[in-house]
Amino acid sequence: MDDHWSVAAHRHFKAAGVRQVAYVPDGGLTRLIERCREDNAIETVMCATEEEGVGLAAGAWLGGQKAAVLMQSSGVGNTVNAIASLVTSAQFPFFAIVTMRGQWGEGNPWQVPMGQAVAPVLEAIGVKVFHADTAEDVGAMVEAGLRMAYSSDQAVAVLVSQRVIGSKVWVADNKEGAQ
């Protein structure tokens, strides 16, 4: 039996009636993306940028469906204007899972600034932020976040800690080995 946190997240998507999932490919989200892609009741859309996912989520809501947006922390900066203007001003419900970089064990110095800015930036534009610091936290955070987003017309992001997804090794001397 698979006890990866993605199992609980997918289960809560189903229970909440999420019908669309927008994502930008990310190693930390691979298993959740695969689960959603294999689920015939969920339409998955791979986006070129994270802000496209914000538009998809708003469009889904206008069309009578619930959506979730999946992204890595480095892409959150791409969503700020779309969330602040479209989601917050128009009071659309919005739900995202963000896998974090720039935290525990980060070896890539390029990931640290945005990783440290994600929560304060999202909070500054009105997004409620839930921190999932262990794999066991993810399911409860996703369930509560979906409920809050879709019952209260709120913008909610569950930040999945780098401690949950694992850190990557950055090899500064070997650019081919850098991740």
Results as ranks from 00 to 15, higher is better:
Lys175Phe: 07
Asp133Val: 13
Ala178Met: 15
Val24Asp: 05
Arg31Cys: 06
Arg11His: 04
Ala68Glu: 01
Asn81Trp: 04
Trp5His: 08
His12Ser: 10
Val118His: 01
Lys168Thr: 09
Gly177Val: 02
Thr99Asn: 14
Ala68Trp: 09
Pro109Ile: 11
Trp170Ala: 15
Ala135Leu: 02
Gln111Asp: 09
Leu159Thr: 07
Thr44Arg: 07
Asp173Lys: 13
Leu62Asp: 00
Asp133Phe: 09
Met100Leu: 06
Val76Cys: 05
Gly17Arg: 10
Val80Phe: 11
Pro109Asn: 14
Ala157Arg: 03
Ala16Phe: 10
Ala22Cys: 10
Val45Leu: 07
Ala135Thr: 10
Ala119Met: 05
Phe92Gly: 00
Glu52Pro: 05
Lys14Ser: 01
Gly53Gln: 15
Glu43Met: 04
Thr99Pro: 04
Gln116Val: 13
Cys36Tyr: 01
Tyr150Arg: 06
Lys168Ala: 13
Glu123Ser: 14
Glu43Gln: 03
Gly63Tyr: 13
Met1Ala: 12
Thr88Ala: 12
Val158His: 01
Gln111Phe: 03
Gly177Asp: 05
Val169Lys: 12
Trp104Cys: 13
Gly145Pro: 07
Met114Ile: 14
Leu29Glu: 03
Arg37Tyr: 01
Leu70Cys: 11
Glu123Tyr: 02
Gln116Ile: 08
Val127Lys: 07
Val156Asn: 05
Thr134Phe: 04
Gly105Val: 10
Ala9Ile: 04
Asp39Cys: 08
Asp153Lys: 02
Asp173Pro: 01
Gly55Ser: 04
Val98Arg: 00
Glu136Phe: 05
Val158Tyr: 00
Ile42Arg: 12
Ala8Tyr: 12
Met46Asn: 15
Ser73Trp: 07
Gly55Pro: 03
Ser85Val: 15
Leu56Cys: 02
Met114Phe: 10
Cys47Pro: 01
Gly166Pro: 09
Val112Gln: 15
Lys14Ile: 05
Gln72Arg: 09
Asp39Thr: 08
Thr134Ile: 11
Gly75Thr: 09
Val127Cys: 11
Ile125Lys: 08
Lys66Met: 01
Gly139Glu: 03
Leu159Lys: 03
Cys36His: 01
Val129Ser: 07
Phe130Gln: 14
Phe92Ile: 00
Gly64Met: 12
Ala15Lys: 12
Ser167Val: 05
Asp133Arg: 13
Pro25Cys: 04
His4Glu: 02
Gly126Val: 04
Gly55Asp: 10
Ser6Asp: 07
Ser85Trp: 11
Arg37Gly: 02
Ser6Ala: 15
Met1Gly: 15
Gly126Cys: 09
Trp5Tyr: 11
Pro93Ala: 03
Ile97Lys: 03
Pro113Asp: 06
Ala140Asn: 11
Asn108Phe: 09
Ala132Glu: 14
Gln116Cys: 11
Val54Ser: 08
Tyr23Glu: 08
Leu86Ser: 09
